[in-house]
C-alpha cells in the first residue's frame, strides 16, 4: 500500500482516501449534539460524510453504525445520571420495531406507485413542523407561567411544563398498567407502545432513525421529563442502531474503519453533550432542539428543490454553532459546580 500523508486514511472497503481528522470532528460534533438531545443525528452525519468524499450509500450505512456506538457511550453516561428508563425503552422498542417494518413496507408500496421521493420528504417536513409548533407552544406557555408567577410572588412547579398532552392520556386505563420508575409515570403499557409504534412507522417510512420524533413524543405524549426522554431515547437509538448496522452490513454498505475513527471523536463529544444536560433546564434543551428541527426542515426543502450543497453547508454550519453552545453550557456549569465545591471546602 502506498504511503499516504498523515492526515489521509485509506478506507479498505470503499477504496477511497479520507481526511481522517474530519471524521473525528464529525464524530465529536454529533457526539455532543446526540448526547444533549438524545437523538442519533443521522441527518447531521450523512451530509458531512458525503462532503468528506464518501459515496452516499456508504455514508448512510457508516452513519448508522457510528450512531449505534455513539449512543452506547452516551447511554452509559445518561444511565449514571438516572436519565435512562430501561423498562420504558424496552416496552417501546418492540412496538418501534414492528412500526419500522410497517413503515418500510408502506414506502415499498409508494415506490411501486412511483411517488415515494416527494411524498416522503413533504410528510417529513409536515411532522417536523408539528414538532416545532409543539415545542414553541411549550416554551412560550412555560415562560408566560413563570412571568405570571413571578409577578404574583409565587414559584412555579419546576417539573410542570407549558404543554401537557400526557395527563389525559394517562387516564386511559387499559391493562396492563405499568409504573416507569425513572420517568416517574404510571400508565397503560399501550401508551408508550402506541407512541413507539407510530414513531416507528414514521421512522421506517421516512428512512430515519426516529430519535427526532421519539424524543418529543416521549415528552409530550408519554409525559417523561425532558432529561429522561433524552436518555431513554438514546437507549432505544442504541438498540435500533445496532440492528440497522447489521442490516446495512448485509447490504455491503458499511465502512468499519471509518466507524472506529468516528467513535474516537464521539466518545469525547458524547461526554460533553451528556454532562451539559445536567446544567441545562428542560426548556433550554428543547429550545436548541427546536433550532435543529427548523434547520433540518429547511435543508429538506432545499434538497427537494435541488440545492443539495447549500443544504449540506447549512446543516454543518448549524452543527458547529449548536455544538459550541452546548460546550459553553457544559463548561460554565462545570466551572460553577467546581467553584461551589471549593467554596464549601469539599
Amino acid at each position: 500500500m502506498e504511503l499516504l500523508p498523515w492526515y489521509m486514511m485509506y478506507m479498505p472497503i470503499s477504496g477511497i482516501e479520507i481526511f481522517w481528522p474530519g471524521l473525528v470532528l464529525i464524530g465529536f460534533s454529533v457526539g455532543v449534539i446526540g448526547g444533549f438531545f438524545g437523538m442519533g443525528g443521522a441527518w447531521l452525519v450523512t451530509p458531512g460524510l458525503n462532503i468528506l468524499g464518501f459515496p452516499m450509500a456508504f455514508a448512510i450505512g457508516t452513519d448508522i453504525a457510528h450512531i449505534a456506538g455513539k449512543s452506547m457511550i452516551a447511554t452509559i453516561r445518561h444511565a449514571k445520571f438516572g436519565n435512562v428508563d430501561v423498562k420504558l425503552g424496552l416496552a417501546m422498542l418492540v412496538f418501534t420495531m414492528i412500526g419500522i417494518e410497517i413503515g418500510a413496507r408502506l414506502v415499498m408500496y409508494l415506490e411501486a406507485l412511483g411517488i415515494v421521493g416527494p411524498v416522503v420528504r413533504w410528510i417529513y417536513v409536515g411532522f417536523l413542523c408539528v414538532i416545532f409548533l409543539m415545542i414553541l407552544t411549550d416554551i412560550l406557555k412555560k415562560l408566560k407561567m413563570e412571568k405570571e408567577a413571578k409577578a404574583g410572588g409565587v414559584e412555579v412547579d419546576k417539573k410542570k411544563r407549558g404543554l401537557d398532552l400526557s395527563t389525559p392520556l394517562h387516564k386511559i386505563k387499559i391493562p396492563p398498567m405499568m409504573h416507569f420508575k425513572e420517568a416517574g409515570i404510571y400508565c397503560s403499557l399501550w401508551l408508550p407502545g402506541m407512541v413507539g409504534l407510530i414513531t416507528g412507522v414514521l421512522a421506517g417510512f421516512l428512512g430515519i432513525g426516529g430519535g427526532m420524533l421519539r424524543m418529543p413524543a416521549l415528552i409530550y405524549f408519554v409525559g417523561c421529563p425532558t432529561h429522561v426522554a433524552v436518555g431513554t431515547d438514546l437507549f432505544e437509538v442504541m438498540l435500533s442502531g445496532l440492528y440497522g448496522a447489521f442490516t446495512f452490513t448485509l447490504k455491503g454498505r458499511i465502512e468499519l474503519i471509518a466507524v472506529v475513527v468516528m467513535l474516537c471523536g464521539a466518545s469525547i463529544g458524547a461526554q460533553i453533550g451528556t454532562v451539559a444536560t445536567k446544567y441545562s433546564r428542560g426548556l433550554g434543551i428543547l429550545f436548541w432542539f427546536m433550532v435543529c428541527i427548523v434547520v433540518c426542515m429547511i435543508s429538506i426543502i432545499l434538497k427537494q428543490y435541488g440545492f443539495v450543497t447549500i443544504a449540506g453547508v447549512l446543516i454543518l454550519g448549524v452543527v458547529f454553532i449548536v455544538c459550541g453552545v452546548i460546550i459553553r453550557i457544559m463548561l460554565i456549569g462545570a466551572l460553577a459546580e467546581l467553584r461551589a465545591k471549593k467554596a464549601a471546602g469539599k
Binding site: 449505534a68 456506538g69 455513539k70 449512543s71 452506547m72 457511550i73 452516551a74 447511554t75 452509559i76 453516561r77 449514571k80 445520571f81 438516572g82 436519565n83 412555560k142 419546576k158 417539573k159 410542570k160 411544563r161 421529563p225 425532558t226 432529561h227 429522561v228 442504541m238 472506529v260 467513535l263 474516537c264 464521539a266 466518545s267 469525547i268 458524547a270 461526554q271 454532562v275 444536560t277 445536567k278 433546564r281 428542560g282 426548556l283 462545570a334 459546580e337 467546581l338 465545591k341
Partner: peptide, 28 residues
Amino acid sequence: ALGSGLGFFMDMLMSHTRLDLTSREIRE
C-alpha cells in the same frame, strides 16, 4: 465492544474531574 469500552473508559476519566456525575436536578 468499542462503544461500551470507550463509554466506561471515558466514565473513568470523567470521574477524576470532581464533578458530581451521579445525580441531577430535573428542571423543566
